[in-house]
Structures are given as structure tokens and as C-alpha cells.
């Protein structure tokens, strides 16, 4: 039987909960696959070997790192689930602005921690990752589609097209044109654009689409009244590593 593992590192467990919310799919899977390791959901767990290991969360301690390296060794496929695992997550949005010491001081003051801590990083900084399913949280339909594909030896296909695609095809009135900051044009779709449909600009929780045009989006944000600094901060919230050190004028051309 195919052995599946689902584990969490530094994150909020939201993605694991979202996986648990795929009730129909899990119902169908039980009996066909073995959930060998899923501590969030079951008491008896076995971390010996896997066909597919889903990993949530970013790597921010030596424990995370060891567990991840171990998991990688024991699994044929490793899939990063959620934005923390894929890009570092919201906890890494200021990685390029402050030193680790400053961060520790701000959070823990003078308390000594008895583990090794680093700036939160995506799984791919530590191990090879076979597939990435970003999202805060990940999208249930994409999880189910990925599992179905991998079980059948098919490559899941996620073109990195912008959120505007799903937004426009849902006939949502464009927020950006109404002066509401929206990251749709530079963000990876797949969520179905639920945020714009409810009138909230896309926050970019799924990271970058292919070759995002940051120059133009920054200039649009400034046209609608955001300062340059706020515009950059807004873009950085979820993009973690993929946008750190963003400089204007550097995002153009080269495949763009």
C-alpha cells in the first residue's frame, strides 16, 4: 500500500487542518493508501518510510531541519504544502530587513533558548522538493488533484498564471481599477480568487506568478495612493524568499 506522511514544521497547522477538511477525498483514500504518519490527526504514527511525504511549515530551528532531512531520506516524493513550506511564509517577510539577533531580542527579550534558531526558510533551502503547493492555506482542490496525479504517476500541472485569470473569469469587477490595492496581477493563481470576489484585494498568499512585473504594480500602487515603502511591504507579506531584496527595475525582461 502507498504510504503517505503528513508532517508540520514551523507554521500554524492551518494547511494540515485544510488537508483534514478534504473529507470526501480522505474517505476515498482510506483503504487505498496508508496514512502512516499524521500526528495532527492520529495517535499511532510511524516515521519509517514513505512514498509521498507532505511537509507543512518553514524551517526555523535545528529540530525542523533534522526532521526535514530525515523525512527526505525516508520518502520517495516530498511535497511542500502551504506558503511557509514553499517560500518561508509570513514569518520570513522581514528576513532581509533585520538580523537574527534583532528578531530574537524583539520576540524573546533576554530569554535564552535551548535550541538553535535561524531565520525562517523554505524547505527547498534545506532539501530537494519535488512539488510545491503554495497557499495560505493551501487549496483543497489542488491537494486532492496532486494526490490523485501522484498516485497514478502523473505530473500535476500548475501553470504559474496570475490570480487575475480566475478573478476575471469569475466576472469580478477589477479592484485595482477602483483604487483598491490588489496583488492579483503578480500572484500565482489556483485559489479561485475568493478574496477579490469578496471585495478584498489579493494579498498574494500563493506567491509569485511567472515573471511578475513588480515595477508596474509598484507604480500602480503609488498611483492609487500607497507610499513606495508601503507598496513594497505589501508585496513582501507572503512572498518570503522569492521577493527578498526587491529592487525596482530588476524585475523586467529575461523571460519576462
Amino acid at each position: 500500500m502507498v504510504r503517505i506522511g503528513i508532517m508540520g514544521l514551523t507554521g500554524c497547522s492551518g494547511c494540515q487542518c485544510e488537508i483534514l477538511n478534504c473529507e470526501d477525498a480522505i474517505g476515498k483514500l482510506i483503504g487505498k493508501v496508508e496514512f502512516a504518519y499524521f500526528p495532527l490527526a492520529q495517535d499511532v504514527n510511524d516515521f519509517s518510510e514513505f512514498d509521498i511525504l507532505f511537509v507543512e511549515g518553514s524551517v526555523s530551528t535545528n529540530l525542523d531541519r533534522e526532521k526535514l532531512i530525515e523525512g527526505r531520506k525516508r520518502s520517495k516524493l516530498l511535497v511542500a504544502v502551504g506558503t511557509c513550506a514553499c517560500y518561508g511564509g509570513v514569518q520570513s517577510q522581514r528576513n532581509d530587513e533585520a538580523s537574527l539577533d534583532e528578531m530574537l531580542k524583539a520576540v524573546y527579550g533576554d530569554t535564552k533558548l535551548d535550541l538553535e534558531v535561524f531565520k525562517p526558510m523554505p524547505l527547498s533551502d534545506v532539501v530537494d522538493v519535488d512539488y510545491e503547493l503554495p497557499g495560505c492555506p493551501l487549496d483543497k482542490r489542488q491537494f486532492v488533484y496532486t494526490v490523485a496525479s501522484l498516485l497514478n504517476g502523473v505530473e500535476p500541472f500548475f501553470p504559474k498564471i496570475p490570480v487575475c485569470h480566475e478573478c476575471k473569469l469569475s466576472e469580478t469587477d477589477c479592484l485595482l481599477l477602483k483604487g483598491i490595492p490588489c496583488q492579483g496581477p503578480v500572484s500565482f493563481s489556483g485559489c479561485g480568487a475568493p478574496c477579490t470576489a469578496s471585495g478584498v484585494g489579493c494579498q498574494g498568499c500563493r506567491g509569485n506568478c511567472d515573471f511578475p512585473n513588480f515595477d508596474e504594480i509598484l507604480s500602480i500602487y503609488q498611483d492609487i495612493g500607497l507610499s513606495f515603502d508601503d507598496s513594497v511591504k505589501f508585496l513582501k507579506v507572503f512572498r518570503g524568499k522569492t521577493i527578498s531584496g526587491l529592487k525596482v527595475g530588476s524585475s523586467n525582461e529575461k523571460g519576462a
Binding site: K168, P185, D210, E216, I217
Partner: peptide
């Protein structure tokens, strides 16, 4: 200035 957002064709 184009964002490659695909709106124009969609």
C-alpha cells in the same frame, strides 16, 4: 507596463 495578467484576452 503590461502585467501579463491575461485580462485582455480573457
Amino acid at each position: 507596463r503590461c502585467l501579463s495578467c491575461g485580462t485582455c484576452t480573457n
